[in-house]
Computed example of a mutant assay.
Amino acid sequence: MFENEKDGIGDGPAAGNPAAAERRGDRRHVTVLRVARVVRAHGDELCVIRNISSGGVMAHFYSAAQVGEHVVVEFKSGRQLEGEVRWTRGDTAGVEFEDKIDIVAFLAGEGDVAGQFDPRAPRLAVGMPAMMRSGVRVYPVQVCDISQGGLKFRAIESTAIDQKLVFRIAGLPPVSGTVRWRDESYAGVAFDLPLPLETLARWAAETDRPG
């Protein structure tokens, strides 16, 4: 556990600041371990929420956060909360929301269970070419988005429900999965094994994606 982690966003280098102490006084916090999508000036990434309060979150970032940086944190429900980085300590940062939330109602809407990872992993925009293998044939395709559990790509004529595929995306290990849905333009694949969070998060932080 991080030092004074239980105190939430108001902690870190500003902990001795009377204004920070005042902000802490009117909010509750809940310790969680939850993956979220964070939208930053250079693109979207993954982060791990350590705790959340009515006024903000403390999160682990996979690329350096800067004090004063504007971010948007997106949770599993798709709800987005805008905020500003108020402090950093190593890979951990405190983000203060622009508007306070009702923490009890918010977590009820998220179906949150403290200490558990979100089973519906957030999706990252990709917009990158990839090679897709179906049996012995290999096709160039465009991957639109990706999560720990699957991806969406531009379907080709032969794409079919229940088809087994293997994808090679630059910077990631090969991933295999099964087509679960398709429409006229796109198809969705569920991976046989989820991508490790650390692998996907560091890839997202270090890869220049046009997505």
Rank of each mutant, 00 (worst) to 15 (best):
V35F: 03
R34K: 03
V113H: 14
Q142T: 02
K152N: 01
E82C: 01
V104T: 12
K100P: 04
Q148E: 10
R209F: 07
D99A: 01
G90F: 06
S63C: 06
K152S: 09
G8E: 01
P18W: 05
H42Y: 05
P129I: 02
N17P: 00
G25A: 08
K164Q: 08
G135V: 14
G149F: 07
I49Q: 04
G188P: 12
R23K: 10
K100R: 02
P119K: 15
K164W: 11
R180Q: 15
A114S: 11
G55V: 05
P122T: 14
C47I: 12
D44R: 14
K164E: 13
E184S: 04
T199C: 12
R154E: 13
R137E: 14
D118N: 15
Y62V: 14
V32F: 04
V67T: 04
M131Y: 08
V126S: 03
A204P: 15
H60N: 10
N4Q: 09
G8Y: 10
A14F: 04
K76I: 00
S147C: 08
A204L: 08
A205K: 13
E157P: 06
T88C: 13
V113P: 07
N4V: 05
I103D: 06
G188F: 09
A21G: 06
G211I: 03
A14M: 03
R86W: 06
L33W: 08
D7A: 10
V143I: 14
P174Y: 11
R28D: 02
P174S: 12
Q80M: 15
P18L: 07
I161Y: 01
S77I: 08
S185R: 05
H70P: 00
